[in-house]
Design a protein around this nucleic acid. Structure first.
Lengths: 236, 236
DNA sequence: ACAAAAGTGTTGAAGATACACCCATGA
DNA sequence: TCATGGGTGTATCTTCAACACTTTTGT
């Protein structure tokens, strides 16, 4: 290694994960209490430093696994935060990932073990550093992305009903949708398989379960199919 | 500072800038030759390490200023690249910014001084490390963003004609647009002011100059106006 | 007068929105 | 039987895409 590299400043590099979940009709975020002084006990995102020899994505996977017990989580980089005073203890540059998990797959025991808790996105506690900003920006990204990518499914169990899916979208967008138009739009993607089974216990009539056809989606993606919006496509 | 921070791994943190320009009907990227061994002389993006006490955006501004002589450049974070072997010399995590500059504002002398050169985006030389990937991803972002934000103006002089603007969009999207539809769409934003003056020398008839009304745009943004697409808005 | 690029409107198709009633079931 | 939430179709409007001729002016 030469002078060019050796003399450079080396900041700490952290990864913070905004973990979204969906439960009881509201969009939630998983928060944990900070384990070290100062600000010990303050609510914040799941976090960790990058390890030597570890890629960024792998570091995020490691942190998510530790926090949730799950691999194979939908996960994507949001952006990097690096204001000078954002961590008052020491200069830390922080890469934010956001992740979508199925709350039903979540290991309850880990909540206690990690001093973690789900909070409704509309009723967050006071958060340390710039974590509030990170969550709001992640939510914005989720809103925008859910318009052209079938993300909602990542937050629901394998089998879900259309009313459930609609309520989820309403929680993400904080907006009511028309039942008929919503169904039309969702079913028009042709990515949902209707099952024979009906949901019991929630309503008297019972709603049909659907399943997201991930294979079909992956095929379409592989074939170069584009779920992007058509309008403003400057077509021809 | 306590143990939690002290024991953490500290990678090098670089910033790489994809500088887009527009000239002679083609979208271009500004590249420089690497100044140190190994790979000295290889083409790559304008780059630099983060300095102590400097925010990420300020670091990007510094690097852009050094490269182009300009401040006040449109600039935005793309994403962070951190694969383990991406810099073969040493582990370097790299934050990519993309920037849009007016080539006419560019100081010619700096090109030589920095061993820099504009390359058409469709005819890039072999690039070092993962810089090719960074450029392609930035271009993708530029394409997507130009559909719902008036970005094109950043690449043109203050005064420009609609045929010029259209050619720019065609260069960004690598696609021909219909003159009439393009005009309609652009003028529908109500953000362009038609000037009295006509362009001379390019065509016999001469095209009217237009000017982007940045004040008006900023006002609308401040008022919460949203340039996002309407379709898929899950409206009501 | 003619060549070359600038400028302009309309029509049909597709997609988005608004809206109201019947159905199945458990209590 | 009735209360609750599930399911369905249509009419209107907006937006997008396709398309061809006239205007201006320099040579």
């Amino acid at each position: 290694m030469n002078e060019y590299y050796r003399s450079a400043y080396r900041p700490l590099l952290a990864l913070d994960c905004v973990i979204f979940g969906y439960e009881e009709g509201t969009l939630k975020v998983l928060l944990t209490r900070r384990k070290q002084e100062p600000y010990k006990g303050a609510w914040g995102l799941a976090t960790g430093f990058l390890h030597e020899g570890e890629s960024l994505d792998n570091a995020a996977i490691r942190i998510l696994k530790k926090q949730t017990g799950l691999d194979d989580i939908y996960m994507s980089q949001l952006q990097t935060f690096g204001d000078v005073g954002r961590d008052p203890v020491e200069r830390v540059v922080s890469l934010v990932y956001y992740a979508l998990v199925r709350v039903d797959a979540y290991d309850e025991k880990l909540l206690e073990q990690n001093q973690a808790q789900w909070f409704s996105i509309t009723a967050l506690p006071k958060l340390m550093f710039d974590h509030e900003d990170m969550i709001q920006k992640s939510w914005g990204k989720l809103r925008r992305k859910s318009r052209y990518q079938p993300l909602g499914f990542e937050l629901l169990p394998e089998k879900f009903t259309l009313p459930e899916l609609q309520t989820l979208y309403e929680a993400i967008h904080q907006k009511q949708f028309d039942k008929r138009n919503f169904r039309k739009k969702i079913l028009a993607t042709n990515l949902l398989e209707k099952l024979e089974e009906k949901q019991k216990g929630v309503s008297k009539k019972g709603a049909y379960y659907y399943q997201f056809q991930k294979d079909k989606y992956d095929e379409l993606i592989a074939a170069g199919f584009n779920f992007e919006l058509k309008s403003m496509a400057f077509g021809s």
